[in-house]
Amino acid sequence: MGKVTVALAPITMTHAEGPMPDGARGQVWGAMHTAPTAVPGGLTGTAAGEYPRQLRLAIKAEYGGRSDFYTGQFSLRFRLLSPLLAKECTIGANAPIDFQLKRSGPSQWVSQDPPLIKFSAYDDTFAAPTAEGCGPLSAPLNRRLGLPASSGNLMAYDATYTFRTYDQLPAL
């Protein structure tokens, strides 16, 4: 996105989906967990020199409040982490980035027991807003990252999916 290419740390998502009693599709969001990923070149885009700790930069995906796995719609925010940035520094803070994921091939069953399915998806049309809440480094950081970035950015997504049906869940 923008001027930076990063392979994000693996993301684990928990959600439920399936038919409702009236036949409509239902979904419930559970949680999302991931770790920060270092951004090559840190805050300056160059070697850290004599201040490697202070100039490091990492990005962490956060749930943006919308998920629809039937249609491929998904929203994320991206927290920017550095000792020199405010804790609120986020791309998509007020308006999360909306992705419209498209499958890039068929799903592949890896295992039947437990059920394990692999697939890939992508969005190459999304726009990315500026980072907000970054304190006095907001403008130089946005220049460094190439934000805002008009449509045509790319997010590729390789997923491994498993599931349990409600009759397989432990009794409460």
Rank of each mutant, 00 (worst) to 15 (best):
131 A>H: 03
94 N>A: 15
113 D>F: 12
99 F>M: 13
109 W>A: 11
57 L>Q: 05
62 E>S: 11
78 F>C: 03
110 V>A: 13
85 L>I: 04
120 S>W: 01
43 L>C: 06
115 P>E: 09
63 Y>F: 15
112 Q>Y: 12
73 Q>T: 12
41 G>C: 07
101 L>M: 14
93 A>N: 09
123 D>T: 05
98 D>N: 09
64 G>N: 09
124 D>G: 15
131 A>P: 03
89 C>F: 04
56 R>T: 15
63 Y>E: 03
97 I>D: 01
96 P>M: 07
69 F>R: 07
92 G>I: 00
91 I>P: 00
96 P>Y: 04
129 P>N: 10
44 T>L: 14
112 Q>I: 03
51 Y>W: 13
86 A>D: 15
120 S>F: 02
95 A>N: 12
109 W>R: 13
64 G>E: 06
35 A>V: 07
82 S>V: 04
39 V>G: 07
58 A>Q: 15
48 A>N: 04
80 L>D: 02
47 A>C: 03
44 T>F: 03
124 D>Y: 06
127 A>L: 02
96 P>I: 01
35 A>Q: 14
76 L>M: 14
87 K>C: 03
81 L>V: 15
59 I>C: 09
99 F>I: 11
74 F>P: 00
111 S>N: 10
110 V>D: 08
60 K>T: 08
63 Y>V: 03
41 G>T: 04
57 L>G: 03
73 Q>E: 15
101 L>A: 03
73 Q>P: 00
104 S>E: 11
63 Y>L: 05
92 G>M: 01
46 T>L: 13
95 A>M: 05
123 D>Q: 06
77 R>K: 15
78 F>I: 05
56 R>K: 15
86 A>N: 11
37 T>D: 12
107 S>M: 14
55 L>K: 13
42 G>L: 07
89 C>M: 05
90 T>K: 00
95 A>V: 11
37 T>Y: 09
55 L>C: 10
121 A>T: 12
106 P>L: 12
114 P>Y: 12
84 L>R: 10
94 N>E: 15
98 D>P: 00
107 S>D: 12
